[in-house]
Write a protein that binds this DNA or RNA. Structure first.
Lengths: 407, 407
DNA sequence: TGCATTTGTCTAATCCTGAGACAATATAGG
DNA sequence: CCTATATTGTCTCAGGATTAGACAAATGCA
């Protein structure tokens, strides 16, 4: 039951029904391709004639294409329809503190190129220049891509919704940076910029995975890295909030008098489970957001710590175990608050998922209200899946498949 | 941008456009009544002819009615349209631990009767019987009500979505109670049952208030009483989650080693700010969920405590102050998580809102990430507004105004 | 009284779904 | 090979909705 907002609504016109059904056809083909017009008609419960008209439209607009005729037990063989991902592509960029990742993908999110990386400069202008030349080279290397639909960029920071200005990206040291304008100018392509945790959630909802149709139901993506970034999808739609900063579960408190967090407060979830917190725990320091780091610790990463834990280093295992416990306790807050159908977890810590899962689960069960909530589906997403780049690709590719806004 | 769920979608039929626009017309009249067909056409950006057809439908179905002709500076005078709330009514019931509240309201949520109360029996069957006789009497006392659209019931507990069984209502001592079936049988009316915190949020979104159109944007209702109940409205729709238990912010942790909560965990927000916690703080006990209460404390209520605080009782003021601080700290978690446009607060503590507001605000500001988030609109809802009964009324009255489900 | 303005209704055009007929295509069986 | 059956995709007509525009009714002003 949705309330109609009497200050902002969309009236239905003669074309509205067609738009709705067109969107459904497109999404069904995306989820079940290949499929025939007759399949669509059966699944939608409409006549084949109506489907034919819509499909003709989508063929003309280049969103679908007809492949070979399929096999049928009896009768005329069906013409198979596919989402046309042959000549169109999107560019995905993931700007992180030290490195920037770049990839070419088709409109379904499948990689068309390998992932290339280059060091991230502190100067936004230089990042834009580097991106522009590498994007040009990437497109030149793939002449089969006739049309590039745009560039999706994800950044570890807050992004203003309307202008896409990067308001604050602490690990990059950027404040109020207009990457959008600069990159649009430099590439001549449409550009979308989004917070990385949020984009990861978008990717899980849109990109085809094992279940082939994207994740149904409410979902949460929790990215555990330098900080804790969270993206939330409710009813197929991104949770944004009034100021486009919803989903900051990383700064929900675990303990009011807990360790200092980078946000200035004490005892945020992030202060317990970020990579920095885990490493600090290993090195026996109090988890301080900006304490001095000794030389030998400077290049010691989360991956190293996990390797030592696997090599029976008791201190490393204990540090990981503690993080796992806090991860589960914080997850309980997320699950109590949102009761999602599924939680995805990304970040380096997923490398150790087999070591920590049971601890996470038992900590979660300590604080959830019902057994069903404690059993919430939790799935680690490996770094090798490049969830951020998938999210960046989805920023450009997904809108074509979005439901029309109505009422 | 909403994803289409390829497993559960709604195809547009010939009637869909009409349903959409009919819903918009109905909501516009509700928000701006009285208004003419020409007003509607201007506001919707469609021809007057299209509006006339829809209005004719709505008049025939008894959802609108034509009032007197209005005044116009020049030209033909308009015929004013109103939502027809003359002969139809809904019954609202609020079942609480000690008392049950009952009221008759029109479909806009306006009270048609006073609020009557009776003691709540521990036996659900007796509650149903008492409700049925009192509902019959209420309707007999209001012969002007020709049609009663149903009975909305709110309870302090978890309600299963599909069957509306009350899974667990701790303060009532009810587990797995099928009030819905029994009350439908006893009254012969449609019955809707919902958790009270959630229904309160629904009411704020649907019932006309100062802004006349219900609250726009995402909103949260936080009901502070025996426990902490939270209802969340996102994009005009109730946040339910997979198991219909979303919104349990009352059990988000403030401090992992904090006081014991009724849910079994430690340091839940509820364990810091519930009435019981505040009273326990006043009496110098550790806030225990089920500790023994001495005789002189048995009938000492939150209202009494607030009265003493106003009478310069330092201990009472301190207890209230502490609760205010924890209220603000927990609010920060809610606001960081959801970034709502507005937060409503209900419960006895709102009686002291003038005393505690600044403390709540400063505690909130300690833990929010941006200044804008710290400035989130927070509005106390007085008990005299009967937010729970308004929510119960909305359970029945709102569906007629809901947007059609599409795509 | 004549004119301008506004409201509400009515008609024709256009677009979309709903229902069903029809040709094309393929298999099964005699 | 021929016929019956089944399936796909197209086409036509009917029904219903919005869009555009004409028109009568109602009202105020000069």
């Amino acid at each position: 039951m949705r309330r109609v907002n009497p200050a902002r609504f969309r009236v239905a016109t003669r074309a509205t029904s067609r738009q709705i059904n067109r969107s459904i056809v497109l999404n069904l083909v995306r989820a079940h391709q290949p499929m025939s017009r007759a399949d669509l008609a059966r699944m939608m419960g409409v006549r084949r004639g109506a489907v034919s008209l819509i499909v003709t439209d989508l063929l003309r607009d280049g969103l679908l294409f007809e492949g070979a005729t399929g096999e049928a037990v009896r009768g005329r063989k069906p013409t198979f329809l596919y989402v046309d991902s042959r000549r169109r592509a999107v560019i995905a960029a993931d700007i992180r503190a030290t490195e920037t990742f770049l990839m070419l993908a088709d409109v379904l999110g499948n990689p068309l190129s390998g992932v290339s990386t280059f060091p991230t400069d502190r100067d936004p202008a230089k990042v834009v220049a580097a991106l522009a030349t590498r994007i040009a080279r990437l497109l030149a290397d793939h002449p089969e891509v006739v049309a590039c639909d745009g560039v999706g960029v994800v950044v570890p920071g807050m992004v203003e919704r309307a202008t896409m200005r990067i308001l604050h990206a602490p690990t990059l040291g950027w404040r109020n940076v207009d990457l959008h304008e600069a990159l649009t100018q430099a590439t001549g392509l449409p550009v979308q910029i989004e917070n990385s945790g949020r984009a990861c959630a978008l990717a899980q909802a849109w990109v085809m995975r094992d279940d082939r149709a994207g994740t149904a139901g409410d979902l949460v993506f929790i990215s555990v890295s330098e900080g804790v970034g969270v993206g939330v999808i409710i009813q197929g739609e991104m949770l944004r909030g009034r100021h486009n900063i919803a989903g900051e579960f990383g700064h929900v408190s675990l303990s009011l008098d807990g360790p200092r967090c980078s946000c200035g407060a004490n005892g945020c979830w992030e202060a317990y489970v970020s990579n920095r917190a885990t490493l600090a725990r290993y090195f026996g320091r109090q988890a301080e957001p900006s304490g001095p780091i000794r030389a030998e610790q400077q290049h010691f990463t989360m991956e190293d710590l996990i390797a030592r834990a696997r090599a029976k280093d008791a201190k490393a295992a204990a540090a990981l175990e503690a993080t796992a416990r806090y991860l589960g306790l914080g997850l309980a807050s997320v699950i109590n608050a949102l009761d999602p159908a599924r939680v995805y977890i990304g970040g380096e810590i997923t490398l150790a998922w087999d070591l920590i899962e049971s601890t996470v689960r038992s900590a979660l069960a300590e604080r959830t209200l019902t057994a069903a909530a404690a059993d919430t589906d939790i799935r680690p997403v490996a770094a090798s899946e490049y969830p951020r780049l998938q999210g960046a690709a989805a920023l450009i590719a997904a809108p074509a498949f979005a439901a029309p806004v109505v009422a």
